[in-house]
Computed example of a mutant assay.
Amino acid sequence: MLNKHLLAFVLLACGGLAQASEVVDVYRDPNCGCCKQWIAHLRDNGFTVNDHVEPNMSAVKQRLGVAPRLASCHTAVIDGKFVEGHVPAEQVRLLAQRDDLVGVAVPGMPIGSPGMEMGARKDAYQVIGLTREGRDTVVAEY
């Protein structure tokens, strides 16, 4: 039987391993304020964010395979998969469990999505997953 100190050490070590996969690289235009708010949303939800100011976002999106129909203002990468736009942190976290997806996106900039809060107004929006076959699939609706 494990003593309580060894058990605490094991739990802390496992928790540290889980956090290691929650590092997100965010690429954003230097003049975009909502991107900074989305980064704050990720950090508030336990992610470690590497913030990359990028003068040519079109090139970043093309390199990562973000189709124009899925485009928004910023692009992130977590565990080799893209996250486009104002995707809620819970969906970023769930992306790791979806081997069928190469990324997720919230196209455009819907009001009320993380980083796009403007009072009580909230537009309905979808989180779209891009499959390995290049098909769109709705993974969540808000």
Rank of each mutant, 00 (worst) to 15 (best):
S58T: 12
V139I: 10
K4W: 07
H41G: 09
D100P: 04
L11F: 13
D51K: 15
M118C: 06
S21E: 15
V60H: 01
A59I: 00
G112N: 11
A67I: 05
V10C: 13
A40F: 04
V10K: 07
L42Q: 09
M116E: 00
A18S: 13
D44T: 06
R28A: 13
T131E: 07
Y27I: 03
D100C: 00
E84I: 02
D29T: 10
D123R: 05
V49F: 03
V10G: 10
L64C: 02
D51Y: 11
G108P: 11
V104R: 01
V87R: 01
R93L: 12
A71I: 02
T48Q: 11
A18L: 15
S58L: 13
V138R: 14
C34F: 00
W38I: 05
E84F: 08
I128H: 04
Q19H: 12
D99I: 00
Q37T: 13
R28G: 08
P30G: 14
T75E: 02
V138T: 15
C32M: 03
A59W: 00
E84W: 09
V10R: 08
D79L: 13
M57E: 03
A13F: 12
K122Q: 15
S113G: 10
L17W: 06
R43P: 06
A18N: 10
A71T: 07
E90H: 09
G129A: 04
K4I: 14
F47D: 05
I128E: 08
P107W: 07
Q62Y: 01
A20K: 14
G112Q: 11
A8F: 11
I128D: 07
L95S: 06
T48K: 14
G85T: 02
R63E: 09
A124W: 05
Q97S: 15
L7F: 13
A124E: 14
G108D: 04
L94Y: 00
R28W: 04
D29Y: 05
K81E: 02
N45Q: 08
H5T: 14
Q126T: 12
E141A: 14
V26N: 10
A18P: 00
N3Q: 11
Y27C: 03
V23S: 13
P88M: 06
F9Q: 12
L2S: 11
S113I: 07
R63I: 00
R28K: 15
K122L: 08
A8I: 10
G33F: 06
A71R: 12
G65Q: 01
R63M: 04
R93A: 15
R98L: 08
C73F: 03
Q126V: 07
D29V: 02
R43N: 10
